[in-house]
């Protein structure tokens, strides 16, 4: 090793960062070269000066106060954290509320709120009951299909009207005349949105939807094809009778 090689390794040699072999080579060189030995001595002296000026004694009071303040700060923070309500129950409650709200929203059939065709068609049917019905043949010619007309023992079909709705050209509203001049009508509405009335269960176990408001009065039931069959009176008729007629139209 010559002096130039040694100078390249001077810093790691001083910092004891050399591998053993390199370190031994440097030590041998320093032993043989007074110039480099002097340089090492001077650099060590400089290092000691740096350490000496860099080591600032911290006053005893400051020393105690410093650590005391650190510990006090940590304790204060921990106390605040401990006194604060844990957040997870609030998060859980919020999640629960959101879930319940979501379930309620879905079950309540939100589509109906934003323009329910079932409700609109029922109102339309109610208003058309004041008009004179057409014959079944005329309606079938108009709608190009046969009218769904369930049998009702002891009655005769008086006629039919159509209910128009967007997307569904027409729904036949069949009117039945009963022997005592009573009259009911029957219509199958798409969608079967049962929210238009309250659901009830009869003793035979079958479920009906009953609508009773100043503007609507009907008994309905959900059919196998998903539509809502509705039976409406055209005159003042006791509920019990309406139920019996609805059950007769519904069949077994």
């Amino acid at each position: 090793m010559n002096c130039a090689d040694f100078r390249d390794l001077l810093n790691p040699f001083l910092d004891s960062e050399l591998e053993v072999e390199q370190n031994v080579a440097c030590l041998k060189h320093v032993e043989l070269c007074p110039t480099c030995a002097e340089r090492v001595s001077q650099e060590r002296h400089l290092h000691e000066r740096i350490v000496s000026v860099g080591r600032e004694p911290l006053a005893a009071a400051a020393r105690v106060g410093l650590l005391g303040e650190v510990f006090a700060r940590v304790e204060a923070e921990d106390a605040v954290r401990g006194g604060r309500l844990p957040r997870w129950p609030l998060a859980l409650a919020a999640a629960l509320l959101l879930s319940l709200g979501g379930v309620w929203f879905v079950r309540s059939d939100p589509l109906c709120w934003w323009g329910c065709s079932t409700h609109a068609l029922l109102l339309q049917a109610q208003s058309r009951l004041q008009e004179e019905p057409q014959s079944l043949a005329e309606i079938e010619q108009l709608i190009h299909r046969s009218v769904d007309c369930p049998p009702l023992v002891g009655s005769e079909v008086r006629g039919c009207q159509t209910l128009l709705s967007e997307g569904c050209p027409c729904h036949p509203l069949v009117r039945y005349s009963l022997p005592n001049n009573d009259e009911i009508c029957y219509v199958a509405l798409p969608g079967g949105h049962q929210h238009v009335g309250k659901e009830r269960q009869l003793p035979d176990g079958r479920r009906y939807v009953v609508g009773r408001s100043p503007e609507l009065r009907f008994v309905g039931w959900k059919r196998d094809d998903g539509t809502l069959a509705v039976c409406m009176p055209t005159c003042n008729m006791p509920d019990e009778k309406l139920f019996v007629l609805a059950a007769a139209l519904r069949g077994p």
């Binding site: 000026v53 080591r55 600032e56 004694p57 410093l66």
Partner: peptide, 26 residues
């Protein structure tokens, strides 16, 4: 602590900032 304070002092160049830095570090 002395070495740390000296280090902080050489970094910040004044005692008040050095104490603040040391406290933050500790």
């Amino acid at each position: 602590l002395d070495a740390l304070f000296g280090y902080c002092l050489r970094l910040t160049r004044n005692r008040a900032d050095a104490e603040d830095l040391l406290q933050e570090g500790l």
